[in-house]
Computed example of a mutant assay.
Amino acid sequence: MNDLKVIGKEHIGKIEFTGIEGGFGKNKKAMLVKDIAQIHNQPLSEINRRINDNRSRFKNNIDIIDFLNGSEPFRKFAEDNDLIGSNRTQHVYLLSERGYAKLLKILDDDKAWDIYDQLVDNYFNMRVAIKNNEPSLVQQRRLSIMEENAATRKANMLYKLAMATTSESSKQALIAKGAEVLTGEMEIPILKEKYYSAGEIAKELNISGKKVGMIANELGLKAEQPGQNEYGRWANSKSKYSDKEVPQWLYTEKGLRAIKKELKTIA
């Protein structure tokens, strides 16, 4: 288990959490998700849900350890250190610095990144640098992290703006700008996917737009707003009845085929 051990309560400003070393490598710092939930002022169940919904993005024993669904020594460690809340507890997650960074991308708010700056500066890296008497590395690491986090936030904001616009040319330009912020290179993406409105599908299949929406809902084709999936994506469009913009689900070719196939089965 890479000498997994509890090193006691850690304090960074007003943040208090259980310090843990090992699990992801010798002397590597880690954090319990139950502490992360408290730090971000969110229910543990919500943080676990966000992890479970994106579980494939977290690599076992590199980003994440689940004490209750791993090897027996991990479960015993959790039991010995009173980490299991009750018999109904399904997951006791431990995240590495890399795993925590992935979780922050999912949580995606300014508070999350500000907290991450503090934790990286003072918990994940500071001890090692001080022990090795390398204060210049601490400062360099801090500046690097701050620059990376600022670039990530800016790129994410540009992506959200791109997803919110109905102009395809503006969308391409915003996505390209986001790529430039992250990579330093600006490349206008080529839109290969064609999208169809409910009205366009209704016209092609000779049914009402309302019918298209009903079939899509029955099949569960639509992602949660403002997301996207293989069947389509959400976009904002101007309401025909007012100047307000309203969310509209646009269908991919696969979404169109799914509607068409279902229509044949109920015909």
Results as ranks from 00 to 15, higher is better:
residue 214 M to P: 01
residue 163 M to V: 08
residue 221 L to P: 01
residue 183 T to Q: 05
residue 191 L to G: 11
residue 186 M to Q: 15
residue 174 L to D: 00
residue 181 V to I: 10
residue 152 T to A: 08
residue 178 G to I: 01
residue 230 E to F: 02
residue 160 K to I: 11
residue 167 S to H: 07
residue 221 L to K: 02
residue 193 E to M: 15
residue 166 T to H: 15
residue 190 I to V: 14
residue 199 G to K: 05
residue 227 G to N: 12
residue 202 A to P: 00
residue 161 L to S: 08
residue 163 M to D: 10
residue 179 A to E: 15
residue 174 L to V: 04
residue 205 L to H: 01
residue 173 A to R: 11
residue 171 K to P: 06
residue 215 I to K: 00
residue 221 L to M: 13
residue 186 M to A: 13
residue 196 Y to P: 00
residue 217 N to F: 03
residue 153 R to F: 05
residue 170 S to R: 15
residue 171 K to S: 13
residue 154 K to Q: 10
residue 161 L to D: 10
residue 147 E to M: 05
residue 204 E to L: 07
residue 211 K to E: 12
residue 186 M to G: 04
residue 168 E to G: 03
residue 188 I to N: 11
residue 144 S to D: 12
residue 236 N to K: 03
residue 231 Y to I: 09
residue 217 N to Y: 03
residue 223 A to M: 08
residue 162 A to V: 05
residue 159 Y to V: 05
residue 219 L to C: 04
residue 167 S to W: 05
residue 160 K to Q: 14
residue 189 P to S: 09
residue 148 E to L: 10
residue 190 I to P: 00
residue 172 Q to L: 07
residue 229 N to R: 01
residue 195 Y to C: 06
residue 152 T to R: 06
residue 186 M to S: 13
residue 233 R to E: 15
residue 160 K to W: 10
residue 174 L to E: 01
residue 230 E to K: 12
residue 228 Q to G: 08
residue 187 E to V: 14
residue 208 S to I: 11
residue 145 I to D: 02
residue 184 G to W: 07
residue 165 T to A: 12
residue 195 Y to H: 12
residue 151 A to R: 03
residue 228 Q to S: 13
residue 153 R to T: 07
residue 211 K to D: 11
residue 169 S to N: 13
residue 145 I to Q: 05
residue 208 S to Y: 07
residue 170 S to L: 13
residue 176 A to F: 09
residue 210 K to I: 13
residue 185 E to T: 07
residue 232 G to I: 06
residue 211 K to A: 12
residue 156 N to R: 10
residue 175 I to R: 00
residue 183 T to A: 03
residue 214 M to R: 14
residue 223 A to Q: 06
residue 190 I to Y: 14
residue 227 G to A: 09
residue 181 V to C: 00
residue 145 I to C: 05
residue 183 T to P: 00
residue 190 I to N: 13
residue 192 K to M: 07
residue 200 E to I: 04
residue 156 N to E: 10
residue 195 Y to F: 15
residue 178 G to A: 13
residue 185 E to H: 04
residue 194 K to A: 04
residue 172 Q to S: 08
residue 146 M to Y: 07
residue 186 M to E: 15
residue 192 K to N: 06
residue 195 Y to D: 08
residue 186 M to K: 15
residue 211 K to L: 11
residue 198 A to G: 08
residue 185 E to P: 00
residue 198 A to P: 00
residue 171 K to T: 15
residue 225 Q to T: 12
residue 182 L to Q: 03
residue 166 T to E: 14
residue 182 L to R: 02
residue 235 A to Y: 02
residue 165 T to F: 08
residue 157 M to W: 14
residue 212 V to K: 00
residue 223 A to V: 07
residue 159 Y to Q: 06
residue 196 Y to I: 08
residue 184 G to E: 11
residue 171 K to A: 15
residue 187 E to K: 15
residue 160 K to P: 02
residue 166 T to M: 14
residue 192 K to T: 08
residue 199 G to Q: 09
